[in-house]
Design a protein around this nucleic acid. Sequence first.
DNA 1: GACCCTTTGAAGAGA
DNA 2: TCTCTTCAAAGGGTC
Length: 613
Amino acid sequence: MPQLNGGGGDDLGANDEMISFKDEGEQEEKISENSSAERDLADVKSSLVNESETNQNSSSDSEAERRPPPRSETFRDKTRESLEEAAKRQDGGLFKSPPYPGYPFIMIPDLTSPYLPNGSLSPTARTSNKVPVVQHPHHVHPLTPLITYSNEHFTPGNPPPHLQTDVDPKTGIPRPPHPPDISPYYPLSPGTVGQIPHPLGWLVPQQGQPVYPITTGGFRHPYPTALTVNASMSSLLSSRFPPHMVPPHHSLHTTGIPHPAIVTPNVKQESSHSDISSLNSSKQSDAKKEEEKKKQVHIKKPLNAFMLYMKEMRAKVVAECTLKESAAINQILGRRVSPDPRRRLRRTVWKPESWYMFSWVTLVHLLLTFQWHALSREEQAKYYELARKERQLHMQLYPGWSARDNYGKRKKRKREKQQAESNEHREYFPNPCLSLPPITDANTPKKCRALFGLDQLSLWCKPCRRKKKCIRYIQGEGSCASPPSTDGSLLDSPPSSPSSVVPSPSSKESKPQTEQMQPLSLTMKPAHQPLHHPHLLAGPSLGQLENSAAAGKTPAASSHNGALERADVSSSRQPGSSVASSMARPSAALCHSRSLHPSAAPQPLSLVTKSIE
DNA sequence: GACCCTTTGAAGAGA
DNA sequence: TCTCTTCAAAGGGTC
């Protein structure tokens, strides 16, 4: 494992205390060894669903009665302990701090750094670039002293008014507040602004208002339900289905009532404003349009628990930082800390675009605060219950509807199939160069055009599609081509884990690439103003990467590629910065030399997406 | 403008 | 029964 010299005091920041943010793969390695814990988690989750199914109309009190004795630990606790154990095995005791759920290795920055917005640097403090921040979860909240750290994206010292600090009594970890009766983040159409009904208004028949108004938009219509929900539930439902459209819960209509899930290709979630404007048009034309729309009606799938959670929390995450990319936000919200290996193997493939830049404080805070898997049992149960009700209502409204009806309405992702095929090939023709696609025939390299033909253009590597030099052909010539980024090509598969270079004592066998460390990682953002603080980064096994590179273990270390040059533009030739690059993109560091630009120093204070391409 | 990314969960299809 | 695939939301990014 990482050649972390915890007390060496070398120029790589050996004094730095690292937190081992285990990636899924290694977590799963641990998990596989502790299958009982995994099963326990799975049982907990399934029991949540079961509870939701069985307790559909029960009050919270009765739920509490039927619920098994309170578990001594929440998901967060289990996650943390799981990661902690994995880290112990992995680092052989080098790591003194238990890991946090999330991501491979986070270097604790020197909070006194002058490069930090709130840093007040003392000269002596510089000798130790990082301070141990993460403590045992049972102790003081590790972020407590750091929470005042702020940057342009994250201002924990000034929690937004919507997010009150709610400290988990068990872990001392701030928890997001329970959904308010009215979430300020639920999208309100312009026409509905200022018309926010009482959150429980839908439970009470509203006089003078059509119970099932039919708007021209064809959705945002009443969502009949006989189910009882609490205030949080009602707020969630209201988010999806405006309260004034949610009928009294004793009024169950099952026929002919449009559902919010109904979407026509041309109109989406129209507001009441559009309703008003539609009144200006003639009735006849409206009738014709509606008929046309009915023909194009698209009944969407009901949202599952996680989708409901995401829908609610996304806005809060956005409020916490300036990150707006849904992909990144979704990672924060949903990345598994203790994933089911089978699920992750087939679906979690980290793209190079996933290397978002986070300040580590921001990342840790967001993970601890918003991660789905860090929710307590009760909190998750709430969303499972809501999702169950959604499905129930959906079934009542559209008895004949099948999820299959929507198949094919989105373009099928051929890339996944290509990826799978590529992986199969890789087993037979492993490519030594990072995660390059398989050399289908190493002895007779062919360009994509010759290999796949014009009719299979989608299988071509990206350079070929752009009429540039074929990377596969380059491979055939024996060089290690630069990865052309995504599109089912080179970097789609997670890069090699550092453990593949320096085998971990606990790693008994090579793991598939998808199980290797390639998480959401802390890296740096190129900035005009140099920020020579190498320890604001997080990433995998920096010392390991550095050592392997120094030992000449890096394959194809001399090959350059523009993508990596751009990706590493945040690096400098300073050891720390090059480390940063390695940490940020371990696989790249393993296979490619760094193009270092002294003028392009990292700026770790923003969340951006790196486009490798 | 279509599609991708990214997440979990539900559901359908096929082996 | 198990595995795989697709689709739900979301908005910036890519082509």
